[in-house]
Design a protein around this nucleic acid. Structure first.
Lengths: 211, 211
DNA sequence: GCATTTTTCTAACACTAGTTCGATTTTAAA
DNA sequence: TTTAAAATCGAACTAGTGTTAGAAAAATGC
């Protein structure tokens, strides 16, 4: 067979899917190879034909997840309609990030959820991909700031972390059907660009108003 | 002794401190009772004089953590200078939340970090405190909106989740010394109220500008 | 100081996890 | 159909976990 993939490749993918899903749900340490195997219709021992260890399996899930968001956001920047504003660019990046995170991708959401609690050496080997993704966002925001689309009197690194936090945290509460990803992106960008505050009556230098 | 606490109470507190710290670092499943015991200068078996099980220990850590933020934010609202604006109120709440989360409190940060990966029944028993805390924020934001300090054409629930996400995610990256909690609160509130965008040149109904 | 309670230790138990490896089945080519 | 390789099974092993309970030690009251 050359049209498709070898049986090994198929099993491999099935295992990775099962692992991503289970890791995402229960976390790394609480996930047992027996569970993963069951979800992949195999015996636990058979996993070792495809992966050298549980850590190796984890590592690949993490890498895939991070590559997917990275590529999604990168493509969102390349496929922008000509003449897009920096707000449009950022909005597209936000939407791409959220979509990857929340739509059918256990890999990225697993990565986001469990990264804080993985073995030290796995983290060390994975950190490069993380940094590369952070760098992508750094560039997007810096370009916007340099073009005077974002205020210059702010700590962009801090803004980036707060922004990523708002987006990433959605893996903890998002339920498909209750809110659309578009609406989430709308609200996020509204906050980011314009805020949701209304000027309160008082007009002095401080915000003093009557309760 | 009546001036202080019994030896049992002291040991109990020592164990809880050690548990919160270790849970926060490694997650629940990956944390062993041997580690907790070592951090508390005891033997693993001795823990059972104070707690019935690992789950029970976890439960108490979670509860304490949630109560601490709740109380901190609640107090921040009560101790406001008279005539404070709604922005001031929200800003105080943000700062209280961040301070509890990032300043010497392993309990709250443990709660935030590991909540997604705890046994089902523990979560079920803990969820009330979570809901109560969410309700506190809901009230604060709703009051501001009703007083026309926040826009009315937005989904406040969604804003709340994004806001909490931005704040909570800081447990994943915050390092004392690099950024002050004040600065973080400043940026968060600036984003929330005014945004960090600058009106781009084009003035049509849409944001179309020349790159 | 002694007796009683409180607190901790120690060693063991039961159980489950990750992992290994030879046997077995499935697959694909000749 | 035969045969060799690829893929999976299945049972075992090792290590480490949460947990228990009786012995030891420390604290407390008389």
């Amino acid at each position: 067979m050359t049209t498709e993939q070898s049986k090994s490749d198929i099993s491999r993918a099935r295992i990775l899917d099962a692992a991503a899903k289970t890791f995402r749900q229960k976390g790394y340490a609480a996930t047992t190879l027996i569970e993963i195997a069951r979800a992949a219709d195999m015996q636990a021992g058979s996993l070792y034909y495809h992966f050298g260890s549980k850590d190796e399996l984890l590592e690949e899930v993490l890498d895939i997840g991070m590559r997917r968001v990275h590529e999604a956001v990168e493509e969102s920047q390349e496929h922008l309609p000509p003449g897009s504003s920096h707000r449009d660019r950022i909005r597209a990046a936000v939407e791409a990030h959220l979509t990857t995170l929340l739509k059918l991708d256990d890999y990225t959401s697993a990565n986001i959820r469990i990264f804080g609690q993985i073995p030290e050496d796995v983290r060390r080997r994975h950190i490069k991909l993380r940094d590369a993704y952070a760098e992508l966002w750094r560039r997007i925001l810096a370009k916007a700031q340099k073009s005077r689309a974002l205020r210059s009197d702010i700590d962009l690194g801090l803004v980036r972390m707060l922004l990523m936090g708002a987006l990433n945290w959605s893996v903890e509460w998002y339920q498909p059907g209750r809110t659309s990803i578009q609406t989430m992106a709308d609200h996020m960008c509204l906050m980011l660009f314009s805020g949701i505050g209304i000027d309160e009556p008082a007009r002095s230098s401080e915000d003093e108003t009557i309760a």
